[in-house]
Each structure stands twice: as structure tokens, then as C-alpha cells.
Amino acid sequence: MGHEPGSESTVVEVEFEISHPQYLLVELTETTGCTAELVQILPRSHGAYTVFHRVTGTTPESVLEVVEEYDEIDVRVVSSSDDEVIVEFQIGEDGEFFTTSLTDAGAIPTELSSRDGTVRIVAEIPSIHSASDVIAQFQEAYPPVEIVARRQKEYSVPLFHQQELYESVIDLLTPRQHEALLLAYMNGFYEWPRETTGEQLADEMDVTPPTFYEHLRSAERKLLSVIFTK
């Protein structure tokens, strides 16, 4: 049966905290004094993920120095400025990462931030999953995690439908198209006046400006096709 207009879908929102130094984001913010914030999770094939974080208050070199201790995680600096660094983590199917573990358990991470050696995670669990089972699976993977809050929320559109739409859109893009679109969005390319140029973003991707614009236009065209193609 379809979702009736005007009806609501209930989800469980859970807030976690973890401060154990064995975990990357805990060590990163404790060691360097930076703050880290989740930007986006991109599912890949065979259980792998690409996770983008915004890091402020430290240098790209300091980030790379900490992350290189974690063999199961590959890292790349996507862009950097005086104020922030956008970092891409490649998580293999055997790698562990807070957000990917929650996703695999059936939750949808909506917020992740780390400051002063404490990671705060907020995730929403759609009603198609048992909240208790999802929480138990996450706590089994990360025993030191603490539950700070648990509450119910309601959406006029089922949350899992929103997630399915997001994943279907992302599946249309190649990795380079997604990277070009994300770089443009994160660096103010769509603001007015523009905060960065296509040439600067092409340099970040280590491609020529025409190649960057081709990736970006292809990504934009695919996104628009979802909206305007019937």
C-alpha cells in the first residue's frame, strides 16, 4: 500500500557519544585540536564507502599524519584553504567507521561531529527496522559508545523513501562527476558572487578546466533529468 497523502512516518532518532582514543575521529580531534564534521556518505560497490568530512583548525599535513596510522582507511585531501580542509576517507568492506557501521545496521546518520576528543553522532532509524536491534548492533561494534538521547520524530514523507531517492540519484553519477559537484557546492561555486572559480576547482581535482566543467555539467544534467524526465 502506498503512503497516504498527509500521513506521517515515525522514526527513532538516537544520539551517541564516544571518546575512546582508539578511534580515528576521536584521536584526530584530540591530537590536533581540530573539529571534524560529516559532509556526506557515498556508498560504493561490495560494501565499501566514501565518506567526506570537513576539518577545521588544523593543516592537511596533520590530518594525513594521524590517518596514516589506520591501515584499513585510505585518505585524500579533496580541498583546503586557510579555514578548512575537506577530507575524503575511503572505507573498504572490512574497514570500520562510525557512519558506515550505522548505515549497515539500518540507520541513517544525519549528523556527526568531533571536538576535543569526543565524537557526537545523531542517527535516524526508520520504522522498517527495530531501533533496539540497530542500537545493539552498533554498540556491539563499538562497546565504548554511550547513548545520550533517544526520541521519536515524525516525517510527512517516509524517511526510507528519501534515502532511496538520494541513493538513486548518487548512482547516476560517476565518482569524478560526484567529486566535481561536491567540490563546487562545498567551495561556494554556486553562491553569488562566486567564492571560487572553475579553474581553482579544476586544480583541486588535478584536471584541466575543460575536463572539470565537463564533469560538472554531466553531473548537473543527470540531476536535472531526475526532476524533469517523466
Rank of each mutant, 00 (worst) to 15 (best):
C34Y: 01
L223Y: 05
H129T: 07
Q22N: 12
Y23D: 00
E69I: 09
T99N: 05
G92D: 07
A219P: 05
M1Q: 12
L38I: 09
T208P: 01
L165T: 14
E204S: 13
Y23T: 01
A180N: 01
R115I: 04
D104H: 11
L102F: 00
P209F: 01
Q162M: 13
L38C: 01
F16H: 02
D203I: 04
Y142V: 05
L25Y: 07
E68I: 14
E61I: 07
L224Q: 14
P144H: 08
Q90L: 15
R151M: 02
D83M: 07
V26P: 03
V12W: 02
L165W: 08
L102I: 01
A48T: 13
E220P: 03
T174F: 05
A48P: 02
I108Q: 06
M1K: 14
I125E: 00
T32L: 13
S62T: 15
E88H: 07
E199L: 09
F98Y: 09
L223T: 09
V134Q: 05
T29F: 03
P209H: 02
T174H: 05
I86G: 00
I125H: 02
P5N: 08
E195P: 05
S168L: 10
E124A: 12
R176Q: 14
S168E: 14
I41G: 05
L182Y: 02
P60R: 09
L223I: 15
V77W: 07
E72A: 14
I170P: 01
T197C: 02
Y49D: 08
F228S: 14
T58K: 08
R76M: 09
G198R: 04
Q200E: 14
S130A: 07
S62M: 12
Y213D: 00
K222C: 05
H129Y: 15
E164H: 13
Q139G: 00
Y23V: 01
T58V: 06
A149T: 10
V75W: 05
T118L: 06
A131F: 02
R115N: 11
P43H: 01
A219Q: 04
I108A: 10
Y70M: 06
T50P: 00
I108T: 06
V66D: 05
G188K: 10
H53R: 11
V75N: 06
R176T: 07
A48G: 09
W192D: 08
G6D: 00
L181W: 09
R54Q: 13
E179S: 10
Y166M: 14
